[in-house]
């Protein structure tokens, strides 16, 4: 494994001081190690000229063109597409589950921070909504310089708790975010797929580009038990006895089936669906995000 990939591993990132550093380290490491084609459009390469409009920043006027043609044009670069990214971060109790060192929520915050950092680097506006069964925190998308620290602070401050309800955040998103852009939903999506579909459908109606990051713990994907265990649900508090035979057989089938259904939900809402586990490097999520963004452009 290359040093950059090593840098992006969640347990390595966890050792860093704060989310700002985490996001910076993740993105720098990612950019060093990524393939060129993926990065196309994210360099500050010239893209096109655009006629000056009132209110445009005079620093970007191409004075050479003005001298030759006596017309005022602004240089526009590939990275300056003025899109914006809103991260919907699930902070329900189930996201607090961790079989290893990094919980799903922590992993989600790393991903959210890295996405925000990446977007900020592209001059995109960035916004954040943290929710569980209600909206916990909301930072509308903005391209102001203080947006990133504010967003990272909000992520650091929030703690997982309560249940999950996509209805409220989606409804708020539709009301509060008028401009079209990318909405990244980071959640474990451990809920009924039909309900998730109903709750996410308004986003599609608004024409938002949606990418669903389904963050799961390795133990949730491959439940290994050496003896019977009584599991207590972190959100509902209900219990169920599970024996090793069920964990090896029926549960494995059910979790794969559930992931498939979430994928179908994503497809039916024209959203992308990325499954991430808390033991894999962030670059999988970032790469998918960039591919998604590139397709959008």
């Amino acid at each position: 494994m290359s040093s950059s990939a090593q840098l992006l591993k969640p347990e390595v990132l966890q050792g860093l001081a704060n989310l700002d550093l985490i996001a910076r380290s993740a993105i720098e490491g990612f950019l060093i190690g990524s393939h060129r084609s993926v990065l196309h459009g994210f360099s500050q390469e010239f893209a096109e000229y655009r006629a000056y409009r009132e209110g445009d920043d005079l620093r970007f006027v191409d004075w050479n063109v003005f001298a030759r043609t006596n017309r005022t044009y602004l240089k526009q670069f590939q990275g300056e597409t003025n899109t914006h990214l809103t991260v919907l971060m699930d902070a329900s109790a189930s996201m607090g589950y961790a079989s290893g060192k990094v919980s799903k929520y922590e992993y989600g915050t790393y991903l959210a921070a890295a996405l925000a950092y990446l977007a900020k680097r592209q001059q995109d506006a960035i916004g954040l909504m943290i929710f569980n069964d209600k909206v916990v925190d909301f930072r509308p998308p903005t391209s102001r310089s203080e947006a990133l620290p504010s967003l990272l602070h909000a992520l650091e401050r929030a703690k997982p708790g309560e249940g999950t309800d996509f209805g409220n955040p989606v409804r708020d998103c539709c009301e509060l975010i008028q401009k079209l852009g990318i909405i990244a939903v980071i959640s474990d999506f451990l809920d009924h797929p039909e309900q998730i579909l109903d709750e996410l459908r308004p986003l599609q109606g608004r024409g938002q580009d949606v990418i669903l990051f389904q963050v799961l713990d390795p133990q949730e994907l491959d439940l290994k038990l050496d003896k019977s265990v009584q599991f207590r649900d972190m959100e509902t508090g209900r219990t169920v006895n599970v024996d090793p035979g069920f964990a090896r057989g029926e549960y494995s089938e059910r979790i794969l089936e559930h992931i498939g259904e979430i994928k179908e939900v994503a497809n039916s809402t024209s959203a992308d669906h990325v499954v991430l586990t808390t033991d894999e490097p962030l670059d999988t999520g970032l790469r998918n995000y960039l591919l998604h963004r590139q397709r959008r452009q």
């Binding site: 265990v229 006895n241 069920f246």
Partner: peptide, 23 residues
């Protein structure tokens, strides 16, 4: 009852007792 343990969601474990425990 076996030893208790927290888990993210038991959504996918419904009826596990009937299925696993019957045998």
């Amino acid at each position: 009852d076996p030893p208790s343990q927290l888990f993210s969601s038991i959504l996918l474990m419904k009826n596990s007792e009937q299925i696993a425990s019957t045998e």
